[in-house]
Amino acid sequence: MQPLTAAPDHDALTPEGLARALLRRWYVLVLAALVTAAACYPALRPAPRYQSSAVLVVKPPRTDNQPNQLTNLQPSLAMVSYAVVQRLQSPAGRAELRAAGVHGTYRLTPRNSGTSATPYYSIPTLQVEAEQPAPADADRVVQTIIAVYGRHLHALQREQGVPAATLLTVDLVNRPGTVALPPNRTRALAGVGLLGTLTGVLAALWTERYATARRRRRPGHEVSAPHRTP
């Protein structure tokens, strides 16, 4: 006669076993559903967000032949502008912006004057955007970024020894304007619902596994096994 050994429980590894485990721990799922429903309330009433946006341009110096600086915008100026953007997007540049008071979401986007066939930035314009909970804060962040951008442009030219009479300057095409961002309630509800469902299922399965382990550790607990013939 061979000794009887407990057969491994593979029930929980099947879809039917998972379904039975979830049914046995229905109260965990109900609790998770209540917590998820409570979490959905702030998702339906998100905090207001405002976006401020401005467009700046790098202008060449005024000359007798080109008194209107905006008519002498060259692709080379766009390359200089992009070099400044790369500085601000580097770790050191982001740290400098944070030290200057720039927090939250912001974007520096060189504007493309071409088409899908000519995707080159040939006009040195840069769109600066910032999102904040208050309109004044969004405007302040945009103005701070523009000020830091101007300092970097001046420093870049000073490093190259550009004479003061031929320095490139920064001007605003569009001054900062603020708009309220519409809340995306559908995405927020979907995210909270998915997270709540996943958490509830995992909590129910963990509770089932914990209860099964405790039951097996009890003294005198016997596990039935199939009868074996000698």
Rank of each mutant, 00 (worst) to 15 (best):
P75N: 12
P75F: 08
S76P: 01
S76F: 15
S76C: 09
L77G: 12
L77D: 12
L77R: 05
M79N: 10
M79R: 14
V80P: 01
V80G: 04
S81R: 14
Y82H: 10
Y82E: 13
Y82K: 14
Y82D: 13
A83V: 15
A83N: 15
V84Y: 09
V84H: 05
V85E: 10
V85D: 09
V85N: 04
V85S: 06
V85T: 14
V85H: 02
Q86W: 01
Q86F: 02
Q86R: 15
R87N: 09
R87P: 02
L88I: 08
L88V: 05
Q89W: 06
Q89D: 13
S90E: 07
S90H: 06
S90C: 06
S90M: 05
P91N: 05
A92H: 11
A92E: 13
A92Y: 11
A92Q: 14
G93H: 01
R94F: 10
R94C: 07
R94T: 03
R94L: 10
A95V: 07
A95H: 11
A95G: 11
E96C: 00
E96H: 02
E96P: 00
E96G: 04
L97H: 02
R98S: 09
R98V: 07
R98W: 10
R98F: 06
R98K: 09
A99C: 01
A99I: 06
G101Q: 05
G101N: 07
G101E: 04
G101Y: 11
G101F: 07
G101C: 05
V102G: 01
H103N: 01
H103F: 05
H103Q: 02
G104F: 07
G104A: 00
G104S: 02
T105D: 04
T105S: 02
T105I: 03
